[in-house]
Design a protein around this nucleic acid. Structure first.
Lengths: 354, 354
DNA sequence: TTGTAGGCGTTATCAT
DNA sequence: ATGATAACGCCTACAA
């Protein structure tokens, strides 16, 4: 409402220089108790608080870290998979930032406008955390030369940027081991995502590792490929089934969406889950717990990822020359019904870990 | 990495003044095609992009709107009620902001640090949208004198600030009418929230209205009060039951948490829901759809609220003198099992409206 | 302890 | 079509 007052007015009103006012507002020290009080008084009287922008310009630091994420599911309707992930990441980022006295500036790269938006963001923040899919690799590279960025779930950047990822490999290994050790299944199969997806590759690697650790012979390639999509998952599951005399005892699916599709294919073929064939997914999307049977899957610590990411940009800011870091956070299997586990006792049971 | 270059270097490198560079980057016009190209070229060469902070200082506008919300459920564990709401609001805000070429700065008022944080935020943004519970009323009032703010779900501010709220009254009226008209129940009861909660009052008013519209006589006061909490809901439901010979045919509960409690009380008394007594809630927290029976309730359009809120601060910015506005967004009943409706056909059915 | 004055990187007003 | 140059509001040596 009222024209904002400046440091000059406060200085004048309390009969000191702007330098003194600045000191009072800053260190708190560097001024006698008397003047200090006077300054504070007139500041309050004028309803003045230091202009953040001007201060940022002067100290060369905004106290803001930007968070760029891809806009998925158009607007309202499809509350698809990732939105939830993003929300978690945002919360984590907010938390870590606030803890360090910073704030988080968020922006989604809707459609094409992404490019411009990203740059506009970059010029307003101290650092950027960028979620996979927000920017093309070249853009990512270029923007990272203008401001510190840490890339999230972006394996393609792992060589050049600070990164934080979920441990896809270990997650797959864990869940496979669960199938092997806890349930004693031997005849497993793996449905992968897109052909050259790093995430999918990692998960398959984990699957193989678990198999080998159990003394079983691991296949060189996945039993089938779906595109991480429902449609792809359906087809993959069908192919898998058709390619064998009898269904595998358990199938490790590359992500939840495909697992959901797999479930419906199995049902249509009159195969019971988990009685006849066990199924697991990956991601722990919200639908997983609502399915019947509830889907056993691997949860990724999105919130922690968000926290770690902003901490990492803050660290980078503090020490620009330190070597590139790559953080990979642990994943966790969420055992539910589809693998053969029994539902947890409490009605609201949610996360039974293996 | 490389020291950021400035407008001066770009100007020098292309043999023009900073003014010209600024023009080229801004209007795009005001410069001959030749120089324009030269400037753009050296800008790209230097990897220069205008410093957002400096620009903000010069133009007196940051292009950022802040979003302040209360930190609820401590950190990780209790994914209580509101987090989801907040996430939706954030997404809505982000969307509206980006659409207008702005970005959203988010911050949660963890515990006590709220005060300071809020002010630090306020000095970095063009406007603020503040969720109920983030700040005390006095703080809200003071901060609103330093920067345009729109208050969300904060009835106490309705007289002095721009506001946006959900239509609590209409939601309650709708759901009551649903009970009355669709199911033909006549003997209803209402469990309210805290004694002097504006939200609760609104909902009760809607309840009464529906009753009167149906030619029934509406009570002057709620049949019982809970504190919007599970514990309060339990007690309220017990009191309600104990105060009568036979249970009401349907009970409209002030919010979902209390409704959940009511459900368990009814179960413990061997009363079936909805066969013996129907129950409805308010809010549509995520647990609502997981309950057995699934809870019929009223959904608030959090996403739209977020969108509307930032649009409102943007409007206010454009026209500081316009009169205060108060926007109330429609609510929607989500009919599930607890009111007597049948589950929707599809397995993934979610929102059947009355 | 306190004041002076230059600088932070752009934009915008006036001239030219 | 350009170029000086004064804001923008604050911080921070450097002096006093």
């Amino acid at each position: 409402m009222t024209k904002k007052s400046t440091i000059y007015e406060v200085a004048h009103r309390s009969g000191v220089s702007t330098a003194t006012v600045s000191r009072v507002m800053g260190n708190g020290s560097g001024a006698s108790e008397a003047t200090r009080k006077r300054v504070l008084a007139s500041a309050r009287h004028l309803g003045w608080v230091p202009n953040g922008t001007a201060r940022s310009l002067a100290v060369q630091r905004t106290g803001i870290v930007g968070l760029l994420f891809p806009e998925l599911g158009s607007s309202a309707d499809s509350e698809s998979e990732s939105p939830l992930f993003v929300d978690q990441v945002i919360r984590g980022a907010e938390r870590a930032a606030t803890l360090a006295g910073n704030a988080v500036l968020i922006a989604a790269t809707h459609s094409a406008a992404g490019r411009e938006l990203a740059w506009s963001l970059a010029s307003k923040v101290d650092g950027l955390v960028i979620l996979a899919g927000s920017l093309s690799d070249p853009e990512l590279a270029r923007i990272s030369r203008s401001v510190p960025v840490v890339a999230l779930a972006t394996p393609s950047a792992r060589q050049k940027l600070d990164c934080v990822d979920a441990d896809n490999r270990d997650g797959a290994q864990q869940i496979t081991r669960h199938l092997l050790d806890v349930h004693g299944y031997r005849d497993l199969a793996f449905i992968a995502g897109p052909e050259h997806s790093p995430d999918s590759d990692e998960r398959f690697a984990g699957y193989r590792q678990a198999l080998e650790d159990a003394g079983l012979t691991a296949p060189d390639v996945p039993d089938a490929h779906g595109g991480f999509t429902v449609a792809g998952g359906e087809q993959a599951m069908r192919e898998l089934l058709d390619s064998r005399d009898s269904p595998p005892r358990a199938v490790v699916v590359g992500n939840d969406q495909m697992a959901i599709a797999a479930l419906s294919v199995l049902r249509s073929r009159r195969l019971r889950v988990p009685a006849d064939v066990a199924v697991t997914g990956f991601d722990d999307i919200s639908a997983a717990q609502h399915l019947r049977p509830a889907l056993t899957t691997v949860r990724q610590p999105m919130r922690e990822i968000g926290e770690a990411a902003v901490r990492m940009v803050l660290d980078r800011l503090a020490d620009p020359e330190s070597t590139r870091r790559s953080l990979v956070l642990p994943t966790q299997v969420v055992a539910r019904r589809s693998c053969g586990c029994r539902p947890a006792p409490a009605t609201r049971a949610r996360r039974t870990t293996s």
